[in-house]
Design a protein around this nucleic acid. Structure first.
Lengths: 169, 169
DNA sequence: TTATTCTTGACTAAATTGGTCAACATACTC
DNA sequence: GAGTATGTTGACCAATTTAGTCAAGAATAA
């Protein structure tokens, strides 16, 4: 149940662009170096975001990558969707026909709710929201300062019970 | 972002046991056949659930598997935790030290909230709840009847408004 | 024209997942 | 006890997915 590293790194890359852009294109090389990923790897992360019309690229000298929309118009769910694909945790959520049980299966309803819960978090936040909680520390600089303010209007909830999911692995 | 098939199949197996048990042990062979998974595969799914004290096994003739607690005492979050491991979608959620940015990283807060959102769904429901929405159809029997109660529409999309709002952890 | 930058696709290594098989342990029945 | 019915465990493997590199190319600016 891990997100791919592309999603993880891609989200940071977007945050990087939003913070360093200010209108002007940001060079992939610079993002890569700040976020400590290889350039060729970053290229593959950026690709889908351009195709998904979240980013725009400019080639040639002075070129780079910039946001195609204001950060407060970019939903985090869009980003994850482009980098990770649908949040469906099992196939039958999206394609009921992969399993003859789909119509009546109680677990399917559960998995759908899980997907909705995740989407509810991601769909109610924009890149701008994320920027607010970002204190701007660069990779490796590890400022031991600000712990995030508590957000969570949507999820307000956590488990009804402190369960032990720290076990295993 | 898929759950493992073990989690998916394990959840169904538990539902199967809850429905067919009635106190008496249910044979793995029967569960396997009803749920259309191989016996040897099912054994590996059941293992962690026994270790996690959700199930109890009885060997020998007349033996099988039974629930160690009443279904309404079995949280779905326990089940997923045993079969899938922690819901953390990226490593740093559980182990801040894998990344020097952890303390200040805005994305980490986001991933934590996603995990909480999932846990909120799973932690507020028991196996008994799941049984209620299960119309009892066997594998393959695909009864085109009962659509589960409410439970919003398809696909992981939309639903800006949350779900199981529970108290905080 | 040249340097700079993004773009794309082929490719590979490693990790993970899904699943089988076989040996074993335990319990019941006669 | 013997024999059979059940669950338990670990070794193992094939397939897939993921993470990441490399190299050729295309667009732009100076």
């Amino acid at each position: 149940m891990k997100l791919s590293t592309r999603t993880r790194d891609g989200m940071r890359a977007l945050l990087d662009i939003a913070r360093h852009g200010g209108g002007a294109p940001v060079r992939l090389r610079d993002i890569a170096s700040r976020q400590e990923v290889s350039l060729s790897y970053l290229e593959h992360i950026i690709g889908p975001l351009i195709a998904g019309r979240i980013l725009r690229s400019t080639r040639g000298s002075g070129g780079g990558i910039s946001l195609l929309r204001e950060p407060d118009r970019i939903l985090l769910s869009e980003i994850v969707s482009l980098l990770e694909g649908p949040l469906a945790t099992v196939d039958c959520v999206l394609h009921a026909d992969v399993c003859p049980r789909s119509v009546s299966c109680a677990t399917r309803g559960l998995w759908m709710e899980m997907a909705e819960a995740m989407d509810s978090v991601l769909g109610s936040r924009t890149l701008a929201d994320l920027m607010k909680t970002d204190d701007g520390a660069e990779a490796g600089s590890c400022a031991p300062t600000a712990l995030r303010p508590q957000r969570s209007p949507v999820t307000g909830a956590a488990s009804a019970r402190g369960n032990g999911d720290m076990e295993r692995q």
